[in-house]
Design a protein around this nucleic acid. Structure first.
Lengths: 221, 221
DNA sequence: GACGAGCTCCGGGTAAATCCGTAGTTATGA
DNA sequence: TCATAACTACGGATTTACCCGGAGCTCGTC
């Protein structure tokens, strides 16, 4: 079973068993790869890692129950910064990309790529420690581009802890007053948080906030 | 290539190339099945069908660009009611189930099932014309259960054309007044639409509506 | 026709969300 | 050290969202 120890050891995390299995079969067919574990959420990943398993790559889905890709990536970055993380996402969002970069994620893949791209990504991240498609690179380059609107846009997409927490709570039936209570902040501060997010995320209503949060995988549903 | 014509001919529609390919490879490995086409959206499916291709099963994803699973299923039901449709969805939603049943969909699959379940589903829908998991059956049975809250709940989940249209428009920055304009209805009617949907969908704010719409695949994003 | 059910429409009122401008506090860096 | 920016906090004014009750309308059923 475990004969060929030179193979790239991959852990796959996605809550959809069907797709995870299909993807796992595909990765296993890449000759130099071997899926050593499949997990349904971030917690399972961490448990496996804690048991001493040391993969070369972890392919993380963003939306998962129990513990999502964001949280899992943050944990891994903190306690096992040597493990390469490749995030596989439905969305093409600068917002989550920025956050994930902060969590030490070194590669992004949209789910609409060609299988050969996945293969290339795995090799790239193992060999060079990172993987970005041209598309991603362009986005990043554009974001970090100084002097222009680029850097402003980057600043915009850096959400503070409060903003992030608020954004998640805004995706509910809760009143701003109730959200303020939950966050331990005065209602007025919530007003400012909201107003700032309206500008940062380029929306003009709470529904807009909720839509952005969902379409960027920030809230799981 | 096309030697074994007795195989079950499958068309696969999902906008995520990676997952679609992985899934296609899996289905192709089921000995009695053969994926004859892969499509990225509903429009492509319809084009293929119009060209005279006649599959035994079409496996449809719900969220797709251009033309989503709802629209594709409706078209197929109208013009090719003999083709079996199997809907593959991320969500476990009674709301979309009801709507899809009305579009002639005869089988549902959540993306978190085991591969063997997919195989069983394909065979079942080809042989008996339908496929429901125990879970689905229970949901349906519960919905159609007369005399109790069941039938009421069914009625609740049957959205009118206006309600459906409003629900989609509610997932935006538009004001109710603006939505009213777009729909050509007086603002007061929008009020009633909203109030009814609050009850039907068991939420108590517009954000709640948006969340339900998104988590049931009613709005694509 | 009488009836209820479902859809559309309305008035008036309260609470919430949104907009405008202002200002204190911290951290960062020239 | 002073300037700058980012975060937090506030007051007051306006618009929007939400809630309550009522009423006409069509349609199918008995």
């Amino acid at each position: 079973m475990e004969k060929n120890t030179e193979k790239i050891k991959v852990i796959l995390a996605d809550d959809h068993v069907l797709l995870r299995n299909a993807l796992g079969a595909m990765v296993d067919k890449f000759e130099e790869c071997r899926v050593i574990h499949q997990c349904g959420n971030g917690k399972e990943v961490i448990e496996v890692i804690k048991q001493g398993v040391h993969p070369d790559v972890i392919i993380l889905d963003l939306n998962m129950p129990e513990m999502d890709g964001f949280e899992a990536a943050s944990w891994l970055y903190k306690y096992r910064p040597d493990i390469n993380i490749l995030v596989l996402t439905m969305y093409d969002s600068e917002l989550s990309m920025i956050r994930l970069l902060g969590s030490g994620v070194k590669g992004f893949l949209k789910k609409d790529i060609h299988p050969s791209e996945l293969k290339r990504a795995i090799h790239s991240i193992v060999q060079s420690g990172f993987y970005f498609t041209n598309h991603n690179s362009q986005k990043l380059a554009h974001l970090f581009h100084t002097n222009t609107e680029g850097s402003m846009k980057l600043a915009q997409l850096m959400l503070t802890t409060h903003e992030f927490e608020f954004l998640k709570l805004a995706c509910s039936d809760l009143t701003y007053k109730e959200i303020a209570l939950k966050m331990g902040l005065p209602t007025r501060s919530i007003d400012t948080l909201r107003d700032n997010l309206f500008i940062k995320l380029d929306v003009e209503s709470r529904v807009g906030l909720a839509m952005v949060a969902m379409s960027n995988g920030i809230v799981s549903f």
